[in-house]
């Protein structure tokens, strides 16, 4: 199970453009999906590690229709990521509706005028009907 220290480590040493280091990925076993936000990419092609999806321009639509809408009808399925705060707001609303909560959240970088704040977070099932 991911804990607060793991998330802090991710935020400190794994800029979103570089992906999630394998060692840290191992430390956060239990997370089913990592989410990145292309708005915070630092240049160069976006390389996605297995188990990672990108939000193009912060748009949650493909992640919802392609993955979470189905996955969050079932038990379990933790999701962690670093995204814009606006994308997290959308995910949080969708998560609430399916018995899940943002159980970890911290700001990595403030809003900078063109982009929203960068936030790292973990969404986990909390309702009895979806807890694994």
């Amino acid at each position: 199970m991911i804990d607060r220290r793991d998330l802090l480590k991710i935020g400190a040493v794994a800029p979103i453009a570089l992906g999630m280091p394998a060692a840290l990925r191992a430390a956060t076993a239990g997370v089913s999906l990592w989410v990145r936000d292309t708005r915070f990419q630092r240049g160069g092609p976006l390389i996605l590690a297995p188990g990672t999806v990108a939000l193009n321009g912060g748009d949650v639509t493909p992640l919802w229709t392609g993955t979470l809408d189905d996955a969050w009808r079932k038990r379990g399925f933790l999701v962690a990521g670093m995204t814009g705060s606006d994308a997290l707001f959308v995910l949080e609303q969708l998560a609430w509706h399916r018995g899940r909560r943002v159980v970890e959240r911290s700001e990595v970088a403030p809003q900078d005028g063109t982009r929203p704040a960068l936030v790292r977070w973990l969404i986990a099932p909390v309702h009895a009907s979806v807890v694994a």
Partner: peptide, 10 residues
């Protein structure tokens, strides 16, 4: 076609 992309205007 439903979308969530409009959220960026908020």
């Amino acid at each position: 076609v439903p979308s969530l992309g409009i959220w960026k205007i908020v």
